[in-house]
C-alpha cells in the first residue's frame, strides 16, 4: 500500500447533483451513538450519505464500523441489552420514528454481510426470490425476469443461468457473495449496506463485486465498510474515517469526497491511517 506515491484516482468523482437519479434514497445519520450494555461503542456520528452514491467507511478494527451499519438498518437493536441514540433519516424520515416497523426499514435498507451466506435449503433461483416471500412482497412482473435482472446486476447471470435449480451453497465463495447481492437487490432496496463484502474473496471476485457496485449505484445508495484502502479509493464517492481509541467510543474523524480525503486529508490521523502507519 503506497498511497502517497500513487494516489489512486477514484473511478467516478461525479457531482451527486448530476448523478443519474434512480431509486436510491439519501441516508443521514444525526448524532448517532450506540452501546452494548454499558459499553459505549459509537459517539456523536453525523454523516449524510447522498442518494445514488457510494460511501466508504474506513477505520481500524473494533472502532464500530459494523455497529454503525447495523444502527442504520435497525439490526443493532436485535442484540440483547443494546441501546442507541440519535436519528437515522431515510429521505428525511426517521427510521426510528414512532410507528415505523423495523422490518419495513430493513426492507428498504438492505445488507450484505462479510461472510457469504446463501440460504442452504434453497436453490439459486429461490435464494434470489427469497426476500419477496420473507418480506411478504408481491412481485408485479414475472419472477423469471426479476431473477435474471438481479443476477445480471450482481454480475452472476452468465455463470449460473443454466443451473438456477442447483443449491446456492454449491457456488464458489465469490459467486455466493454475488448471489447474496442479487438476493438483497431483489426486494428493491433504496440503500444497500455492505460490511466488508470482499474480505473473504480472491482479487478477481473482489474486482467483479466492485464492478457490480459501480453498476448498481445508479439505482441504490451504497454504504460499504472496507479495510482495503485501494478498494475504498476505487469504488467510493465519499469516505468516512472512523476512529475509536482504547476505551473511547468511535467517532468520525473525517468525512468528505474520496478524492480529497485520500489526496489531501485534513486530519493527520487520517493521513497516518490511509498510509498504513497504524490500524
Amino acid at each position: 500500500m503506497n498511497m502517497t506515491t500513487t494516489p489512486a484516482p477514484p473511478v467516478s468523482m461525479i457531482d451527486p447533483a448530476v448523478l443519474p437519479t434512480g431509486n436510491g434514497a439519501t441516508l443521514e445519520a444525526r448524532t448517532v451513538a450506540a452501546w452494548f450494555a454499558e459499553h459505549q461503542i459509537l459517539d456523536d456520528i453525523s454523516l449524510a450519505m447522498p442518494a445514488n452514491s457510494v460511501t466508504a467507511i474506513i477505520g481500524p478494527s473494533g472502532c464500530g464500523k459494523s455497529t454503525f451499519l447495523r444502527v442504520l438498518n435497525r439490526m443493532h437493536e436485535l442484540v440483547p441489552k443494546s441501546s442507541l441514540a440519535g436519528e437515522v433519516l431515510l429521505d428525511g424520515a426517521d427510521v426510528y420514528g414512532i410507528g415505523v416497523r423495523p422490518a419495513e426499514t430493513r426492507r428498504h435498507i438492505g445488507m450484505v454481510f462479510q461472510k457469504p451466506n446463501p440460504f442452504p435449503t434453497m436453490t439459486i433461483r429461490e435464494n434470489v426470490l427469497s426476500g419477496l416471500k420473507l418480506a411478504g412482497i408481491k412481485n408485479e412482473g414475472s419472477n423469471d425476469d426479476l431473477v435474471e435482472r438481479c443476477l445480471d446486476q450482481a454480475g452472476l447471470w452468465r455463470e449460473v443461468k443454466d443451473r438456477l435449480g442447483s443449491a446456492g451453497g454449491a457456488l464458489s465463495g465469490g459467486q455466493q457473495q454475488r448471489l447474496c447481492i442479487a438476493r438483497a437487490l431483489a426486494v428493491s432496496p433504496r440503500v444497500l449496506l455492505m460490511d466488508e463484502p470482499c474480505s473473504a474473496l480472491d482479487p478477481t471476485s473482489t474486482l467483479r463485486i466492485e464492478e457490480t457496485i459501480r453498476d448498481i449505484v445508479g439505482s441504490v445508495t451504497i454504504v460499504i465498510v472496507t479495510h482495503n484502502m485501494q478498494q475504498a479509493a476505487r469504488v467510493s464517492d465519499y469516505t468516512a474515517f472512523f476512529l475509536g481509541d482504547e476505551g473511547r467510543p468511535g467517532t468520525v474523524v473525517e468525512f468528505g469526497p474520496t478524492s480529497e480525503l485520500f489526496t489531501a486529508p485534513n486530519d493527520p490521523r487520517t493521513e497516518d491511517y490511509i498510509n498504513g502507519r497504524f490500524g
Binding site: M75, E104, G110, F113, G131, L134, A135, C180, R183, V187
Partner: peptide, 10 residues
Amino acid sequence: LRESSLALGA
C-alpha cells in the same frame, strides 16, 4: 442466516 433473513425485511 437469521440476520440475512431479517435484513431482507422478514
